[in-house]
Design a protein around this nucleic acid. Structure first.
Lengths: 156, 156
DNA sequence: TATTGTTATACTCTATAACTATA
DNA sequence: TATAGTTATAGAGTATAACAATA
């Protein structure tokens, strides 16, 4: 058999290009998002990681430390630190799980819900700007293509 | 009462969804890429940031610290630190710019070129896996849509 | 005066590993 | 013994701001 690696050079090159554009687009979004966030002059500044924690906890409603670590793809100790910081800012509550005395359950506080509102507005506005003049079909198409990429990652 | 925010709820919601899928796809790629990189057992481990520096310097051939900072979207001091580390590992060389005695010119060393090879192979393989069964048309489409998002960011 | 790069300081994110309490 | 979470330690990445040398 011939080199599997160089049998389709053009196609391969194109694949790398797609990934590079993906990374770049993500980077552009992040940079602009962080810029808008910091210009919001909020009493508490949320980094990307902390925001991801809050969003995940909000989505799950109630979640254990270990589950959260798994969902975020980080270590248990990292979650402990992040939650410590968020709890200090009264954005998250940590209560013992009545069913397992080793475990802790995390929940958003009301303060967090209020805090997240303007952030979600910014996110939404920025998303809309980046997708200006994209038809609904194009938006679905983009979602579909990206989801296809993730699906491929979970194959064999 | 009607929220000014919900005038175009479906479309707006879709825009945020697109961005979320984008971020998630990027995250999936990064996680898998870092995993494969670390399993490569290389003598020097390159973080995402250092890799981005090397890739950019490689692409430009020769570049100033200040240009590099601008390209990467980070502060000058950050670049100094990154380059310090890469120079310590003999992956980058720093020579004074003969035309401007304040400036430094960065270049990859031969060691870096050799070092980057297997990394590019991994990147290419992973990209190809994620785009398996995507037709060339779909690949171009994806690139086109993502570039459209970046273009929109630079408007008004 | 403005620009190039460095240094100093501080904070966030992250991993690894050792540890405690509970299952 | 295994699991849930914490603590300790260390290192990378980043920003801000003050600084020196040169333009």
């Amino acid at each position: 058999m011939i080199h599997s690696n160089s049998s389709k050079p053009d196609q391969n090159h194109l694949a790398v290009d797609v990934v590079h554009v993906l990374i770049k687009t993500n980077h552009y979004f992040n940079r602009e998002f962080e810029k808008r966030l910091s210009s919001l002059e909020m009493p508490i500044t949320l980094s990307g990681s902390r925001l991801r924690v809050l969003t995940m906890v909000g989505k799950m409603g109630e979640i254990r430390m270990s589950q959260l670590a798994e969902k975020l793809g980080v270590q248990a100790g990292t979650v402990t630190d992040l939650v410590d910081a968020l709890q200090r800012d009264k954005l998250i509550s940590r209560v013992p799980d009545p069913k397992d005395r080793r475990a802790m359950l995390l929940k958003l506080t009301e303060k967090a819900e209020k805090h997240l509102e303007p952030i979600h507005v910014i996110q939404s506005e920025l998303a809309e700007k980046m997708l200006k003049r994209f038809s609904p079909e194009q938006r679905y198409q983009l979602i579909h293509l990206l989801e296809g990429m993730m699906d491929n990652l979970n194959l064999d």
